[in-house]
Design a protein around this nucleic acid. Structure first.
Lengths: 240, 240
DNA sequence: CAGTGGTCTAGACCACGTG
DNA sequence: ACGTGGTCTAGACCACTGC
């Protein structure tokens, strides 16, 4: 990333943090792996334990690592359960997190259209992987969504025979891409005929529309996703 | 709040933080006021500067205070601009924060109905202040919302002649109640005839429904608000 | 028991804003 | 020049985990 130079005026702990992030981004430290202790990191970078601690604490606040007293610090591992808890924000009327299933997922490669290229900041002519799917809860469809990803980062994703329900763990394990931040833009929309048919509704029914942009470690947009949701008594929860 | 006792096993910085929170909650430190320096707080509580610093940093992370290098630390002041930036999450298609106006606001006092009592955790028979209003942008109505507040906390609010556009600054300045956290539950709904008329729409038009619960310093729900929004190209932004 | 993260101290120097 | 918050150090002890 940015090489150390004499004009770098960032605090020491920020530089150490940057080096640690790079090790996670590049895969030197794998998902779920135990990283060195505060003292070892301090010794390696020639800083005090307090400074190493501040760098690691920053990573913990960004949820790139998990600290456990007495055990050590581990690179975050995007298991399906973790991904749902962290990135899926829909709850039932009784406050229970919804765990959706995914059916009918199909992935294709195509030239990015204008909105995809703009959302993912792609060069003209770049390809995207498109995923279209319907998600169900207790057997009945409630979300229809379409996803676009830069083809360059996911070269053989469209050939994957059976796409899993949660994608972000696949992104981390198979493609080395860790999603760390999302921006969801929410609005309401009337169901178009296709979506109404897919969700078993009358055309014109009100749907929650979620347009999500997910970002990776280098702050680049990795995923663009539009979800049309028929929530019944459920809701999307946004905190603070 | 919780008196110091010998079985209190919280870390020192957490106890100091609690004392500082109490000073803000009780109004000993007023909105916008400069609080003592790290060294003064450290001396007062008999801890080191590092521990006082950690307590104050926790308050800054919760956005109860604002730190400014070279100037000092100030109790957060909920000005209208600050409240919009912090608690209003709607943006125009071009990414600009929407600054709504408020018209037709009316406040009344009534016995809490079942949903109000449940949301605000009120005792049976308690009263609420109800505010109903329509919010406009550039002259055209786009949000119809109804708000419920515990009457006990806002005894004379219903007599206030002209309610301001942003309420949370009024809550802090006139009633000493600082809102620190919100939970927004979002869904889609078809416009009922009344709402459609208020917003100039056809009945059945899809609206974004936002049900907000806002919490004060003692983690008690203070405000329950239901907003029905006709956003056109605008959206509600939820980060991470 | 050894090793880890979590807390706490005492002191130093720096960067910034104000008078 | 002074006082503020921001960084950094070196060392101590505690609480928890796993052998």
């Amino acid at each position: 990333m940015s090489p150390p130079d004499s004009t770098d005026v960032r605090p020491l702990y920020a530089k150490v943090r940057g080096e640690l992030v790079e090790r996670i981004r590049s895969g030197v430290w794998k998902p779920g792996q135990l990283i060195p202790s505060e003292f070892e990191i301090a010794a390696e970078f020639g800083v005090s334990q307090g400074t190493a601690r501040k760098a690691i604490s920053a990573l913990a606040a960004e949820r790139l690592v998990m600290r456990q007293q007495g055990r050590g610090t581990f690179v975050v591992e995007h298991t399906p359960a973790h991904v749902l808890f962290r990135f899926f924000n829909m709850f039932d009327a009784d406050g229970e997190l919804i765990t959706p299933d995914s059916v009918d997922a199909s992935a294709t490669v195509a030239r990015a259209n204008a909105s995809e290229a703009a959302a993912l900041r792609l060069d003209a002519g770049a390809d995207v992987v498109r995923i279209a799917r319907v998600r169900t809860r207790r057997g009945s469809p409630f979300i229809r969504e379409s996803i676009a990803l830069p083809h360059q980062l996911f070269p053989d994703l469209a050939q994957t025979p059976k796409l899993p329900n949660t994608l972000y763990d696949l992104f981390q394990k198979s493609y080395g891409i860790l999603l760390v931040r999302t921006e969801d833009r929410l609005s309401a929309a009337a169901a178009d005929p296709d979506t109404a048919a897919a969700l078993g509704l009358a055309a014109g029914a009100p749907l929650l529309r979620i347009e999500r942009l997910a970002f990776g470690l280098d702050a680049r947009p990795i995923e663009w996703r539009v979800s049309l949701c028929h929530l019944r008594a459920a809701y999307y929860l946004a905190r603070s």
